[in-house]
């Protein structure tokens, strides 16, 4: 079965991102396909490589990056939400004249249409948020 996942909260304040990670891992273990994970609202904060959590804590951003690499998962950060919150890739850096970018490996920035497309293409859309 083909799943779309929406994550609406950042990596540490709220459990949503960890719940989504655990759900995605379980779905992959069961042989399902993760068509896309779409990060919206403060969920875009899952996409910054500049996080440095304490060593004894889970590195949520890195967990997403590793999962994406291992299973070729499409991690999409909403551009409108990302611009508000300072999540920047090279393209956005150039377009908006910023002095840096911070997108984590495996993530890409794209439009809200990617969420709607996931809703259309997937058998199930599962939302994690606050």
């Amino acid at each position: 079965m083909k799943f779309g996942i929406q994550v609406n909260e950042g990596p540490y304040t709220h459990e949503a991102s960890v719940s989504a990670l655990n759900f995605v891992k379980a779905a992959l273990d069961a042989g399902h396909e993760i068509f896309r994970v779409f990060f919206y609202h403060d969920g875009v904060n899952n996409g910054t490589r500049l996080t440095t959590p304490p060593q004894d804590d889970i590195n949520i951003v890195q967990s997403w990056s590793e999962l994406a690499e291992k299973h070729n998962i499409d991690l999409v950060v909403c551009v409108a939400a990302a611009q508000r919150r300072g999540i920047v890739d090279e393209g956005e850096q150039e377009r908006n004249g910023k002095d840096a970018n911070n997108i984590a490996p495996g993530f890409r920035i794209s439009g809200l249409g990617q969420l709607i497309e996931a809703g259309i293409q997937c058998d199930r859309l599962v939302v994690f948020g606050d």
Partner: peptide
């Protein structure tokens, strides 16, 4: 911000003719 960003999804989603 949820209400406003939800409305942004609705506006974009409207173009998909669902």
């Amino acid at each position: 911000i949820y209400a406003w960003e939800a409305l942004e999804v609705v506006l974009i989603g409207a173009a998909f003719e669902q």
